[in-house]
Each structure stands twice: as C-alpha cells, then as structure tokens.
C-alpha cells in the first residue's frame, strides 16, 4: 500500500465577512490551518464560528474575502472542495429510520465511492467511533453522544483531506471525549488538515496544535499551543504549611495575592521560571505539595481576549 500522495494544502481564509441582513455574523476572519496539524477555532457564543465553518464547507458564499480549501475555492469550485472536505455540523440531523451503516453507505453513494471500498471503510469507521454494536440499529435509538460519533464517522466516509468539526465534543461522555482526541490526533498524523471549533478549552490544549481565537466575528489572536505554554501565566503553589511558603515567596520577592484555601497564585514568565521557583522553594525547605498552571494554556489566552461576551 502507498502513502497518500495527493498534495494536501490545508485551509486559508483571508478577510472573510458574512452578514445575514443587518446581523454581522462574521466580520473579518483570517485563518490558516496547515495540513498535518489540528487547528482549534475558539470563541464565545455568537462569535461567528459556525458561520465560518459553513463558508468553509461550501454552503455559504462569503460577502467578502478569499477562501481556499485544499487548493480550491469553495465558491467557484464547490465540487472539488466537497470531494476533499468532511464537515461535521454542530447540530447533527440524521435520517432517523436508517441504520448507522445505511447512513454511512448512503453518504458513500452520494460521494460516488466504489461500493466495495466504501463498505470496508464504513465498517472500519463504525469500529473507530465504537458504533459497531449498533450498526444495524436505526439511528433514532441513538443517544445524543452516539449521534455525535456517527456524525464524525459521516464526515470521514469519503476519506477527506480537510476535516471541519463543529463542536465535536458536545454531548460526549468522558471516555468518548478521550477517544475523540485520539481520533483527531490520528487524522492530523495522517497528514489531514483538521479544524475543530470548541468551547472545551482544557481539551483543546491536548488536542490542538494551534488555536485561532475569534470574538465578535474577528480574528483576535493566533496562538501556537506549544508557544503559549512558554508565555507568562498564572501558576498555583500549594504547600503543607502556607506560612512557610509565603515567607519563602516574600524572601524571593515574588509578588502574590493573599493566599486562599488552595494555596497561592503567582505570575511566572515561562516553564523555566516555574522549574526554578520549584527548585528554590524545595531548597528553602518549603514542604511543596503542588506547583501547576492555574488554568489551561488556551483558557488563559482566551479569557484575556474575550472579555466582551455577547
């Protein structure tokens, strides 16, 4: 068997704008999602994430801006884009009376896949999302989380180069979330471009390579998750004896707010600084129990950038 040789060109969006009447859903979004990486699309409710994904999925024409999916323009070359794009909508409707397997095979037919190859792939995907037991049950008996997993399988039936996932984790139980993370990382490892929109920031820390943060329909920041880990952020220190800890911090002239039940918060510039602080505290004989980031990498960046909820 050969590795996929098709050049996989990822997603670029420049200055995308889309209004509905007088409602500006997407104002000005720039986005790059390179192949082989998981890019997170993060933003408050109503910030235009779903609308942007509809533009990328070749369902909406943007009012302005340029979009390229796997090297094609979804407005002028929608068929080329669709053949290469798997889209999982936020609200997943399904043909209720069809079985899971029939749903996926129908999508395979709609993509004009050869029957035998499609059947093998469908069976594999049902295993992948743990719906093999329910393959011949009508989808109306599925729970919300199971439907969500079927939606993921549906987006992957035609072996797409670009995968657009709109809130894929909503409704999933903890185990399914962890498995979703594995599937998404696997898709990127195969060289596909993955764009995930989500609210569950802690999860994206582990799933995503980069994050595009949007607010009020505009791109406000692009964070490399690995780099963001090196950014200045809040850490939490807990010791058996808080008094000793405070004394040690004061001696090191490390600024800190008054302690609470869970310890003391300190601002540190990087992981290196954190390691240095821990070593110093241990050296000073402080009985340190815990030194950890107070919040996720993306959460920190996100909260700083999106104070204006709407």
């Amino acid at each position: 068997m050969t590795e996929p040789t098709v050049p996989r060109a990822g997603i670029t969006a420049r200055g995308v704008r889309r209004t509905f009447g007088d409602v500006v859903a997407v104002d000005h979004i720039d986005l790059d999602a390179p192949p082989g990486k998981v890019t997170a699309l993060v933003g408050p409710n109503g910030s235009g994430k779903t609308t942007l994904l509809l533009v990328l999925a070749s369902l909406l024409v943007p009012d302005a801006g340029q979009v390229s999916i796997a090297g094609f323009d979804p407005v002028t070359q929608p068929r080329a884009v669709r053949a290469r794009t798997g889209w999982m909508p936020d609200v997943f409707g399904t043909w209720e009376s069809l079985t899971c397997r029939e749903v996926l095979l129908t999508v395979g037919d709609a993509f004009a896949l050869p029957r035998a190859a499609a059947a093998a792939r469908v069976d594999h995907l049902l295993e992948l999302v743990h719906l093999a037991d329910l393959r011949d049950r009508p989808t109306q008996v599925l729970s919300r989380g199971q439907k969500q997993r079927l939606g993921l399988a549906r987006a992957l039936v035609h072996d797409p180069d670009v995968v657009l996932l709109d809130e894929p984790a909503s409704g999933l139980d903890p185990r399914s979330r962890i498995e979703l993370r594995g599937i998404v990382r696997g898709l990127a490892a195969e060289g596909r471009t993955v764009l995930v929109s989500s609210h569950v920031l802690a999860e994206l820390d582990e799933m995503a390579d980069r994050a595009v943060i949007v607010a009020r329909g505009r791109t406000v920041a692009v964070e490399e998750v690995a780099a963001a880990a090196q950014a200045r952020r809040t850490w939490r220190v807990r010791a058996l004896d808080t008094g000793v800890l405070l004394a040690a911090l004061d001696a090191r002239r490390t600024p800190h707010p008054p302690p609470d039940r869970d310890g003391v918060e300190v601002e540190l510039g990087s992981d290196v600084e954190a390691a240095e602080l821990l070593a110093a505290l241990v050296r000073d004989g402080v009985p340190v129990v815990e030194l950890a980031p107070a919040s996720g990498v993306l959460e920190q960046a996100y909260l700083a950038l999106t104070e204006d909820r709407r």
């Binding site: 068997m1 002028t76 070359q77 290469r84 499609a118 072996d159 599937i183 195969e190």
Partner: peptide, 23 residues
C-alpha cells in the same frame, strides 16, 4: 495500513479521480 495510522481512519480509500474546479 494500521501501522502508519495508529489512531486515525486506517482503512483508506484507494486513490480515485477527484473532481477539480471544472466539472
């Protein structure tokens, strides 16, 4: 197949003609 795609969709479809912009 499974070897090079540990967590992902390992049953890939054979390379097939995909539509370009003109169809």
């Amino acid at each position: 197949d499974a070897a090079h795609a540990p967590g992902g969709a390992s049953v890939l479809l054979a390379a097939r003609p995909l539509p370009d912009g003109t169809g």
